[in-house]
Simulated scan of single mutants.
Amino acid sequence: MTILESNTPEHSLLGKPAPYATQYDPSLLYPLPRAGKRAEIGIAGEPPFFGADLWTAFELSWLNTRGKPQVALAHITVPCETPNIVESKSFKLYLNSFNDSRFDSADEVRARIRADISEAVWRGAAQASTVGVRLVLPEEFERERVAGLEGLSLDRLDIDCDRYTPAPEYLSAAVDEAPVTETLVSHLLKSNCLVTGQPDWGSVQVRYSGAQIDQAGLLRYLISFRNHNEFHEQCVERIFMDIWSRCRPVKLAVFARYTRRGGLDINPFRTSHPQALPGNARTARQ
């Protein structure tokens, strides 16, 4: 067993006391392989989707060379083809290790984050690439947008709900009728942390072309994640695969924006066809 294969959520610092590092320490990052959870949803080789995990770090600070604190927001884009994700508590501890460390410039901080996250998410891969990192400095804060997810709200439907673990059998599509193209949105997505069981709140957008998906069934399905324990990235991939296999759309994209925890939000996007990533504008709840 390789060192990375021994990395499991249970062995991470999730749910455990952890001291804050006083100096910059990239070794705090804890990568977790994507393969195991993907195998659970029927992905053995290359996944049938493209996309990325869009992270926002709201609690980034460091010292300049004179010891004066600096602050920024960070937008980090992790391609979904990376073999690993980074466990979020380790990401938080890593970012906090910048707090009392001195750097020459914001560009140096950005370069360190890019190199460290890239190494963690590509660790073990035959070929590696880099993640995207953009720092937003205080003079640019007012440009950060708050925007709702575009689409027809599923939450308008008056339905009965009694299943709170994933129920893909709720999904169906009108295969005998004319195909449609539509965008559907719900703010009722909730799942739980895989290790601690703490609640994760999110909004989800489903864009598709193909046989019209039964909206009430889709809403019941999304609500059925309410007591399900998985990380954000894994939930979105499960949603994508269930809709893809049961409703058989010609095109499909699933985007979820989860509320922040520990100064971090994670917003996974998965699409069946190459396209530009959605804008990383936070929702009102984030």
Rank of each mutant, 00 (worst) to 15 (best):
T2L: 14
L4V: 11
S6M: 09
T8N: 04
E10M: 11
E10D: 10
H11C: 14
S12M: 02
L13T: 14
L14Y: 09
A18Y: 15
A18G: 07
A18M: 15
Y20Q: 12
A21T: 12
Y24P: 06
P26M: 06
P26L: 04
P33H: 07
P33K: 13
A35V: 14
G36S: 08
I43M: 13
G51V: 05
D53P: 03
W55P: 00
W55V: 09
T56Q: 11
A57P: 01
A57N: 00
L60K: 00
L60Q: 00
S61T: 13
L63F: 05
G67W: 01
G67L: 03
P69K: 11
Q70W: 03
A72E: 08
I76T: 01
T77H: 03
V78R: 01
V78S: 08
E81D: 12
N84S: 04
I85W: 01
I85D: 07
I85F: 13
S88W: 06
K89V: 05
K89E: 03
F91K: 02
K92R: 10
Y94N: 01
L95P: 00
F98C: 08
D100K: 12
S101F: 01
D104W: 08
A106P: 11
D107S: 10
D107F: 10
R110F: 07
A111R: 12
A111T: 13
R112F: 11
R114K: 12
D116S: 10
S118R: 08
S118V: 07
E119M: 05
P138G: 07
F141S: 05
E142G: 14
R143E: 12
R143T: 15
A147C: 07
G148K: 13
G151S: 10
S153N: 05
D155Y: 11
L157G: 03
I159T: 09
C161I: 15
D162A: 15
R163G: 00
A167K: 09
A167G: 04
L171W: 00
S172D: 01
D176K: 12
E177C: 04
E177D: 14
A178Q: 11
V180K: 07
V180N: 00
T181L: 01
S186G: 05
S186F: 04
L188G: 04
K190E: 12
S191Y: 02
S191E: 13
S191T: 10
N192Q: 15
N192T: 04
C193Y: 04
T196M: 07
G197A: 10
Q198H: 09
D200C: 12
W201K: 08
Q205H: 09
Q205V: 08
V206A: 05
Y208R: 03
A211N: 06
Q212C: 06
I213L: 02
D214I: 01
D214F: 01
L218H: 05
L219E: 00
I223D: 00
F225M: 06
R226D: 06
E230R: 15
Q234N: 15
C235L: 09
F240A: 02
F240M: 02
M241V: 08
M241D: 05
W244P: 02
S245I: 05
S245V: 03
S245C: 14
R248D: 11
R248W: 03
P249S: 09
V250K: 09
K251D: 15
L252H: 07
G263H: 07
L264V: 09
L264N: 01
I266N: 05
N267Q: 14
P268C: 09
P274Q: 14
A276K: 14
A276C: 10
P278R: 13
A281L: 05
R282M: 12
T283Q: 15
A284C: 05
R285A: 13
